[in-house]
Every structure is written in C-alpha cells, then in structure tokens.
Design a protein around this nucleic acid. Structure first.
Lengths: 147, 147
DNA sequence: GGATGACAAAGGTCAAAGATAGTCAAACAG
DNA sequence: CTGTTTGACTATCTTTGACCTTTGTCATCC
C-alpha cells in the first residue's frame, strides 16, 4: 500500500535515526539505482518530504563529486523556522505539515495531533481564506508557545 | 432485499470487527471491482455510512499508492448526545466547562484539555464575540464528533 | 606553468503520463 | 419522493524522461 516515494522517505528517515548528528549524505543516482527509479524521483521525495516544514533541510552540489545532504533541523533552527512561518498567515497544508512534524519530534502527542488537524482544517473554522489563514497562524503560534 | 450500498456497508463493518484496532485500509478501485460497481459507489457508501455521527472516520490519499482508511470511533452514543446539546453559539465559559467535562469523562486526555483551553480562549481566535461564539460551537461539535 | 576548452559526471527543472480518489448531476429503483 | 447507482469530469499525488546547469578533470596550446 506504500508508494515508492513513501518507502524512500521511510528508508531515509531510518538512516537519519541511526546517525547521531542528524546528517546523512548520499548520491542521487545511487539512491535512484537502489530503488530502481528515475533520479528525479529522488528529487521529488526530497522536495515533498524533507522540507523545513517537516523539520529537514537539504543541501546539494552538482557536478563531479556532487552530493545530496539531508539535515535534520536542530530544535533551535526549527523554532526559528516556525517563527518565520507563523508571521501572519498559514495555509491549511502548511499548518497540517507543521503539526505533523511537531508530533514526530515528540512536542505534540497523538491526541494533540488529531485535535489540531481538526481545528486547523478548512471547514472547522468555516471562514474565508484570508481570515482563516490568519487565525491558523495565531492559533499555532499560541499552541507552540505553550507546548 | 439489501441494496449494494447496504451490502458493502455490512461487509466493511464485518472487516472492522475482525481487526482489533478498528482500522482497515483499502483501495477504492479494488473494492468497486469486488462489488462490480462504479468506484464512486464506494465514495457514496463512505459518505453516507461511515461518518463521525455514526461512529466512523475516513482518511484517504489520492495518486499512486493511494488508499482509503476507515477508522472505528469509540463511545459514539455519548458523543452524539453531547453534540446534540450544543447550540449554534457558545460562550468561552460554556466551552471551557464542556471541555472540562469531556476530560473528566475520559473522552479527552490531559493534552487535549490543555490544547482546547488554549484554542477556545477569548484571545486565541482574535475575533469579536458574536462570531467567536459560533466558531467555538462549530469547533467543539467537530471535536466531539471525532474524539 | 597558466589559460583554455572539450568532456564526463554529477544534480536540477519541468512538463507529460500514470494512478488514484473526489464531485456532481442525471438516470434509476422502490 | 427518497435513496441508490453510474459515469463523465476534476483534483491530487506519483513516476518518468528529455533537456539544462554546474563542477571537476585533463589534454592542449602558448
């Protein structure tokens, strides 16, 4: 029931768990070969799963000797990112992605995750989008400050 | 004398009885094929029979590796009763008192209690009172239905 | 030895195709 | 009339491939 992208995500996160500094380095082409897929599939996984919203950062370099480095954000980096994101407006997607990662880092339990998913969803507030986004941002800021 | 929708509902509920965690996962197209019907028929069954008011929740994802997940909720009679008590408007006081009650009956854990207290508090939403009350009511109704 | 340029070896971009699920209105059944 | 069933169309997520850009290496030329 898992897509290739899901499996690759899972495998990479497993690797990240094993290392103590939260940094892994790999070659796009090797990973693609390992999973028998197109190299751009790796890029797809990185850009959809290993984004700052979810607590990761990716660095890379092209050319001979090129590499891809995946970095699990430190708590302070992540909080800085949160502060920047929570400026004034937050889409439902971004909000859900954030809560999911809050859960993964253990700041938020299962119950909290479920509740926030409900509260942040589009129809929960029943408001139009510019306003709903502002409220999401305000709510999440408040929640994070009180975790 | 059962309709196709009834049979599918019954079959799915049978599956849900068999698993201990109350969660099943399936593919819409497979289920449709199994019952020799249009895929949208599955959607129809899910949206008419497996709704929170009847004690179920449905999650899904599109695209390759997509799925439909049906989750059995617990204590749905009592939750339905509570939801029925709710009007269209809820003061901060009433909302907090209700969450307190949810917590005492065990439907809501400590984490959930603290989160809801935050979210329902006056300044969390940052809205004027007629509107804030409506949103509180809508949020709590949603939360109760999905606990 | 230093500049140059061809070549190879990475990774990046983007749009198309594929794989699911959702929506909605019309037809249908009881 | 109400609830069911279908199918055409839509939305979303994944996978692939053709083409682009960047970087390092190495031979060549002065």
């Amino acid at each position: 029931m898992w897509s290739l992208a899901d499996e690759m995500e899972h495998w990479l996160k497993g690797l990240l768990e094993e290392v103590e500094d939260g940094v892994i380095e790999l070659r796009r082409s090797e990973l693609a070969h390992q999973f028998s897929c197109a190299p751009s599939q790796v890029t797809y996984v990185l850009t959809t799963r290993f984004v700052p919203e979810r607590g990761f950062r990716v660095e890379s370099r092209r050319g001979a000797g090129g590499y891809i480095r995946i970095i699990r954000l430190e708590d302070c980096d992540y909080r800085a990112y949160l502060a920047a994101q929570l400026g004034s407006h937050l889409s439902e997607r971004a909000a859900l992605s954030l809560t999911e990662h809050l859960n993964q880092t253990g700041l938020l339990g299962e119950e909290g995750l479920r509740l926030l998913e409900l509260v942040l969803s589009a129809d929960a507030l029943g408001l139009e989008e510019p306003l709903a986004g502002e409220i999401r941002a305000r709510l999440l800021r408040l929640v994070i400050a009180n975790l």
